[in-house]
């Protein structure tokens, strides 16, 4: 006679990372901008950082490994995670930063643009969450941080596909938080306000000012603002914080 099914403890994400070496932190989209900043910050904090982007970066750092990878290319993503498994044997943190925007009126948006934005922002984030969780669950510990945007709650005209793709990220974050809690993994999201990066370079200045005026705190965000929220989510003490999306600037 077979034994009865046995449930595993389902008390939720662990509060402490397993004992061991330095934490391994994977950040997507690290060639430039906020991804590069985050990589440099976490290297400085003693993490082993793995970064990726489609093109090679023009910078390097100790304890930083860069892997060229299109985040929506499943075989390339699987290879990236195989490399992490072989080199480090573990993954503690995933910061799903890679994203692209397209600003255009919906009447003028080609479907190829729609597919490209959804592939990078939604499919890419999903693939990295899935593969990261596969690695993290072995140690029953992990922290995943996704990137949303204030463009979604502000319902910005001209950003229909970008805002929709990030709305999907909020939903993905909320559902994955529940699916991955039994594996000791938290999943949260941070929604930055406009930051002066390449992503908004092409947006007219008056449009940006009108947008910023809709925030409770009307200023551009900074990389430090985003880092602050990410550090909170990654903290071993944040084991009871999951499925949350924090918009910056009081949006």
């Amino acid at each position: 006679m077979s034994e009865p099914a046995v449930s595993t403890s389902n008390s939720g994400p662990a509060n402490r990372p397993p004992e061991g070496d330095v934490p391994v932190t994977l950040i997507t989209g690290t060639r430039k901008g906020i991804g590069r900043y985050l990589a440099e910050q976490f290297v400085a904090k003693g993490h082993q950082v793995v970064g990726c982007s489609r093109q090679a970066p023009d910078w390097s750092a100790p304890n930083y490994l860069h892997i060229c990878c299109d985040v929506s290319d499943e075989p390339a993503v699987l290879q990236l995670f195989a490399t992490i498994r072989q080199r480090f044997g573990r993954l503690d943190h995933l910061i799903n930063n890679a994203g692209i925007a397209s600003m255009n009126h919906c009447l003028l948006t080609p479907v190829d643009t729609v597919r490209r934005v959804l592939d990078t922002n939604v499919v890419g984030s999903f693939l990295f969450c899935r593969e990261a969780a596969r690695l993290m669950q072995r140690r029953n510990y992990g922290r995943i941080v996704n990137f949303s945007t204030v463009a979604t709650p502000l319902k910005l005209e001209g950003e229909a596909i970008y805002a929709a793709s990030k709305a999907a990220i909020v939903s993905l974050t909320e559902v994955l938080a529940r699916e991955l809690a039994p594996f000791g993994i938290t999943v949260n999201a941070v929604g930055p306000t406009p930051i002066e990066t390449d992503l908004i370079r092409s947006v007219p200045k008056d449009k940006m000012e009108r947008l910023i005026a809709r925030q409770a705190i009307p200023r551009y965000g900074t990389f430090e603002d985003v880092l602050n929220v990410i550090e909170f989510f990654l903290s071993p003490r944040s084991g009871f914080v999951t499925g949350q999306n924090v918009y910056l600037g009081g949006v």
């Binding site: 006679m1 077979s2 034994e3 009865p4 099914a5 046995v6 449930s7 595993t8």
Partner: peptide, 9 residues
């Protein structure tokens, strides 16, 4: 029925 694994496992 009679299995050793629940859905999570």
């Amino acid at each position: 029925p009679g299995g050793h694994l629940d859905s999570l496992n």
